[in-house]
Design a binder for these strands. Sequence first.
DNA 1: TCTATATGCTACTTGTTTGTAGTATTTAAT
DNA 2: ATTAAATACTACAAACAAGTAGCATATAGA
Lengths: 137, 137
Amino acid sequence: MKLQKTTEYSLRILIYMAKESEKIHTAKSILENLNISDKYLRRIMTQLTKFGFITSVQGKEGGYFFAKKLEDISIADVINAFEGLEKYSGCVLGFEECSDENPCAFHYKWKEFRSNLIKFLKTTNLSNIEVEQILKF
Amino acid sequence: MKLQKTTEYSLRILIYMAKESEKIHTAKSILENLNISDKYLRRIMTQLTKFGFITSVQGKEGGYFFAKKLEDISIADVINAFEGLEKYSGCVLGFEECSDENPCAFHYKWKEFRSNLIKFLKTTNLSNIEVEQILKF
DNA sequence: TCTATATGCTACTTGTTTGTAGTATTTAAT
DNA sequence: ATTAAATACTACAAACAAGTAGCATATAGA
Ligand code: SF4
Ligand code: SF4
């Protein structure tokens, strides 16, 4: 499980915002807490908006707030939006298809593992994460 | 878990060679079975040789054969040689450190998962893979 | 209306991975 | 020695990801 930097940052941002989920967060305030460069963060915020996770408010007093309920944003949703979940739910060895009929050498060992991973990613969302325990940003 | 293409290919090659582990395999014969371009495959073979997984024999009647016992080549070893295992054993969110004292929001959910993954990669090796079941290359 | 404070868009730069081309080297067999 | 069949090396090209820069747009409030 190695996510792209952009996805890592997105998750960090959303988790950070979820800590005070009612508040409107500015790019500047997020910047000061997470270690992401100004312009890069900006672009990610716009993408998060386009994907419908958050809503942006332009102009003075503007910023970003959640467009959905926290429980409706799973880790899998975020990964899927930015880079596609198939990448991780697909074959570890990069084969086209994976089935019991046409197995590779990993098949029986890997199959179970992978389904656990996907289940974990789909059921873990911004509301059932241990937000209160977060020390790290 | 998304490996680099080069690592995917390396694993495929080694698994393929393990099917007839005593034989000397030529790049040409591997090429015909796995779908990797000539020059790319060649480079990977040389790397596998340098990493000590296989031994190369130059000249006519040459090719590659295993330099180690199959049980001494784990998936983790291969990943580690090509791209570093830390990439996958490290933080999903890209933080520097991961500890119980300084947890992130995923910590307790993710920790167990990750240790299972690493254990799986370290204990799965070329000898305990279901080689006889392989249909796919 | 003007200004300060926000986000949005487009284009570029840099770095890494993936893939390709051409040439050199090695060695068994004749 | 020559040849054929193999691997090794170096450099380049293409695709993608990561990161940066500058200008455009929106809006609350003085
Ligand atoms: S079980 Fe085999 S074929 Fe299926 S995804 Fe895993 S490596 Fe690929
Ligand atoms: S538990 Fe948290 S800090 Fe540790 S590796 Fe996972 S995401 Fe990173």
